[in-house]
């Protein structure tokens, strides 16, 4: 259940939406994002870039998966705010410990190594950002990601969709 915000009963029932009390980093106006601080946004953008990298087709960075995640953190993903705030900090802490710099400062190969560690050490956060990056890349652009439908172009999914296909296949009556 990677996307679960399941609360265990021992942990107290009063906070119906766990984590929603975490405030938006953008509130001081210094960040271009709604929830993330400017630095957090750069880190998430870099993580997305490693999860679905650009090659001959754009990756999650070009698709603006970070915009999808940031937008949803003001909506249904409010419950994941705490997980993001702590998870991003854990990624930077792991980067410093292993390579002596913040995640965004590392070359791609080292970033991949850090993420592979995070996949084990902060498994819950990694599952979250993995699922959300895929959604922000492969999902509908209306939710803030998949800019210019880059993933759908990559997969060759017709857009705008062919509708009423069957009518062309069948002979006209009368």
């Amino acid at each position: 259940m990677p996307n679960s915000r399941r609360q265990f009963l021992g942990a107290g029932l009063s906070a119906a939406v766990a984590g929603s009390a975490i405030s938006c980093g953008a509130s001081n106006g210094a960040s271009p994002w709604r929830f993330f601080t400017a630095e957090e946004g750069r880190t998430v953008d870099a993580i997305c870039d490693r999860i679905i990298p650009a090659d001959r087709d754009p990756g999650a960075k070009e698709a603006r998966a970070v915009n999808y995640i940031d937008l949803q953190l003001t909506r249904p993903f409010k419950r994941y705010r705490k997980a993001y705030r702590e998870g991003i900090a854990a990624v930077d802490a792991a980067s410093r410990k292993k390579f002596g710099g913040r995640f965004v400062e590392l070359p791609a190969g080292q970033q991949t190594e850090v993420l592979a560690d995070i996949e084990k050490s902060s498994a819950a956060f990694f599952e979250l950002i993995l699922a959300h990056t895929r959604q922000g890349f492969y999902g509908d652009p209306r939710h803030g990601g998949n800019r210019n439908r880059v993933s759908w172009k990559m997969l060759g999914v017709p857009f705008p969709p062919i509708r009423g296909l069957e009518r062309y296949d069948q002979p006209k009556v009368g």
């Binding site: 996307n3 679960s4 915000r5 399941r6 265990f8 009963l9 249904p76």
Partner: peptide, 13 residues
């Protein structure tokens, strides 16, 4: 197996 917890309509389980 993980115990007892609250689940919401969009979640598996």
């Amino acid at each position: 197996d993980r115990g007892e917890g609250i689940v919401w309509p969009s979640e598996s389980g």
